[in-house]
Computed example of a mutant assay.
Amino acid sequence: MSTESATPAPMDLKRVTTEMHDLQDRLQLTGELASGGTVVFWLTQRLVKRLVPHLLSWLQPAATGGVTAAAPLPDYHADALQSFAQQAAIAQLPEQLPVQAAQQDSTLLIDAIDVARTPEIIALTFKVGEQKATLLMAQQPLRQWLAVLHDQCRQGEWALDIWPDWIIDSAPGESQPVRTTVH
């Protein structure tokens, strides 16, 4: 008799397609698995509001350009560097077909997301009960996914207060408000 655990093996995601579903008022993440299949996750606004600040904080050291804590960049310089890096990542976003789920794929509502970071990679582990799926991203793919995520949140008319100006101002195809200073 086997005493193996009934815990499912973790899934490794190669890429995801992120789409807002108005009827569900949730984001659908359709993931392409490294093993060749697909999986569909639902992501709620509550989890997005908790996740985005962690993702943004990982990108913050990249804006300082190696400046030490004794001489940090002023906010407007850091924001300009972040905006430039964000626009560059968006410009390099490759045209790809979206990940398509098979009709028999189950859909899973994400309970929690673990975030693990190294200086080079961020790992997002989506948890649904005992099931786990991990997506690894370097800075540029993360910036690209943040642009998609922001756009889908905007389309879903979710509150955008979690998004910094350098993401909002970098959004492609949106008319930008004119920001002037009057002296």
Rank of each mutant, 00 (worst) to 15 (best):
I90A: 06
A91T: 04
Q92L: 12
Q92Y: 07
L93H: 08
L93R: 10
E95S: 11
E95I: 15
E95R: 11
E95W: 06
E95Q: 12
Q96P: 03
Q96T: 15
L97D: 13
L97N: 11
L97V: 06
L97F: 07
L97E: 14
P98S: 09
P98V: 07
P98L: 10
V99E: 02
V99M: 04
V99R: 00
V99D: 02
Q100I: 06
Q100M: 09
Q100W: 06
Q100A: 05
A101R: 11
A101T: 10
A101H: 09
A102N: 10
A102D: 10
A102P: 01
Q103C: 05
Q103S: 11
Q103A: 12
Q103E: 13
Q103F: 08
Q104M: 09
Q104R: 12
D105I: 04
S106F: 05
S106H: 05
S106M: 06
S106P: 03
S106G: 08
T107P: 01
T107W: 07
T107S: 13
L108Q: 04
L108D: 01
L108F: 10
L109Y: 03
L109K: 09
L109C: 07
L109T: 09
I110D: 03
I110T: 07
D111E: 08
D111V: 03
A112Q: 03
I113L: 05
I113M: 01
I113G: 02
I113R: 02
D114K: 06
D114E: 11
V115A: 08
V115Q: 05
V115P: 03
V115I: 13
V115Y: 03
R117L: 06
R117C: 09
T118A: 05
T118W: 03
T118D: 04
T118K: 04
T118L: 04
E120L: 08
E120K: 12
E120N: 07
E120F: 06
E120S: 11
I121T: 14
I122S: 01
I122T: 09
I122P: 00
A123Y: 14
A123Q: 15
A123S: 14
T125C: 14
F126E: 02
F126D: 01
F126C: 02
K127E: 05
K127A: 07
K127T: 02
V128K: 08
V128R: 12
V128M: 08
G129K: 03
G129Q: 01
G129W: 00
G129H: 01
G129A: 02
E130Q: 15
E130G: 01
Q131Y: 10
Q131V: 10
K132N: 09
K132M: 08
K132V: 12
A133Y: 02
A133W: 02
A133P: 00
T134I: 03
T134P: 00
T134D: 00
L135P: 01
L135T: 15
L135W: 13
L135M: 15
L135A: 12
L136I: 06
L136C: 15
L136K: 15
L136W: 15
M137V: 11
M137D: 12
M137T: 13
M137Q: 15
A138K: 10
A138N: 09
A138W: 03
A138Q: 14
A138T: 14
Q139V: 11
Q139E: 15
Q140P: 03
Q140H: 10
Q140W: 08
P141H: 00
P141Q: 01
P141V: 00
P141F: 00
P141E: 00
L142C: 11
L142N: 10
L142Y: 05
L142G: 08
R143V: 02
R143F: 04
R143G: 02
